[in-house]
């Protein structure tokens, strides 16, 4: 037990939590934006997966930031497709989202097969690039807490810092701009927003596109940092966990971030534990993030239940 606590308190573990949180944070911020305007985006998982593969393939032929932008664009495009089918063709948003997930699961493997020339598992023979790490080792010069800060904050992906900034940016947008007010109004009570002359479907479209872009970024981070490359089903439920973070985060960017960090923490724990608790079966350690998500939802949900 002491060993676990020592691990959790160590600077390397905190840094690991930041790393595992980043993709989830991107996706859950995306989920937040679409949930706010009234469309729960269950496709985060699939969009992340497609974003990851797009980023990997494009980055093999272009600089890393073009790869990241391609992941973002692929996500945005999928968000637009969702908006088209949901808002224009009146399909149920949950079904649209799941259709995207199914297309992503099959489509990424199909594309991967062609991109690698027959490998259905990984993109190991594609020379994809990584997102560079931001070196903050000068923090080590600060007396006393310097080394700790350096361990925790230095060497993270540029995208990690972007994700942290996005929390602030989305908060600013939602609570300090007129468009953000409209955004929240549509989610709270659409008829009132409509009466005030706001077209809900326009904002819902923006919400879904933005949500796709952010999930695409999450996918890019997943495939272009620490582990570089694409593997089949590499999101492994992170998009669904991010959806849990959206529901847990009380429709607020800060709340969403806290929930994302919570799930990032348990993911990092499930990565660190096999080295500490050797007697504990790997399969059961692997369930930790999922169990925590279910429990967190059960213990925290106070939303009014409608059938």
């Amino acid at each position: 037990m002491n060993e676990i606590i020592a691990t959790i308190l160590s600077a390397t573990f905190v840094a690991a939590v930041i790393r595992t949180t980043t993709p989830i944070l991107f996706a859950s911020l995306g989920g937040l934006l679409s949930d706010l305007v009234g469309s729960l985006n269950v496709a985060l998982e699939g969009i992340m997966l497609i974003g990851a593969l797009t980023a990997v393939i494009v980055s093999a032929h272009a600089p890393w930031y073009i790869g990241v932008l391609a992941g973002l664009a692929a996500g945005g495009l999928l968000g637009a497709v969702m908006a088209l089918f949901h808002l224009r063709f009146k399909a149920d948003i949950i079904l649209v989202g799941f259709a995207i997930n199914i297309i992503a699961a099959g489509g990424t493997v199909t594309v991967l097969t062609y991109a690698t020339g027959g490998d259905k598992g990984t993109s190991i023979n594609i020379p994809s690039k990584a997102v560079p790490a931001l070196d903050l080792s000068f923090l080590g010069n600060i007396p006393a807490i310097g080394p700790f800060l350096r361990e925790v904050l230095s060497g993270h992906s540029y995208l990690t810092w972007l994700a942290a900034f996005m929390v602030y940016a989305i908060w600013y947008f939602l609570y300090r701009t007129p468009e953000g007010l409209r955004f929240r109004a549509v989610g709270e009570y659409p008829p009132a927003a409509e009466a005030a002359g706001i077209a809900p479907n326009r904002l819902r479209t923006y919400g879904l596109i933005a949500s796709g872009c952010l999930a695409g970024l999450g996918g890019a981070q997943l495939a272009m940092f620490s582990f570089v490359g694409f593997t089949r089903d590499m999101t492994a439920g992170r998009g669904f966990i991010a959806l849990g973070a959206v529901l847990l985060g009380r429709r607020h960017p800060i709340g969403t971030m806290i929930a994302a960090v919570l799930f990032g923490f348990f993911e990092a724990l499930s990565i660190a534990l096999p080295g500490i608790l050797k007697w504990m079966p790997g399969e059961l350690i692997h369930t930790i993030p999922f169990v925590v998500t279910v429990l967190a939802l059960m213990l925290s949900s106070r939303r009014k239940v409608t059938a």
């Binding site: 089918f85 063709f89 009146k90 399909a91 149920d92 079904l95 649209v96 799941f98 259709a99 995207i100 997930n101 199914i102 297309i103 992503a104 699961a105 099959g106 489509g107 493997v109 199909t110 097969t113 259905k120």
Partner: peptide, 18 residues
């Protein structure tokens, strides 16, 4: 590859659900 069926599946859901 057999996985193309996933793409077909998803598109059919989109079309039928709408």
């Amino acid at each position: 590859p057999a996985e193309v069926i996933g793409i077909v599946q998803g598109i059919v859901i989109l079309l039928v659900a709408s």
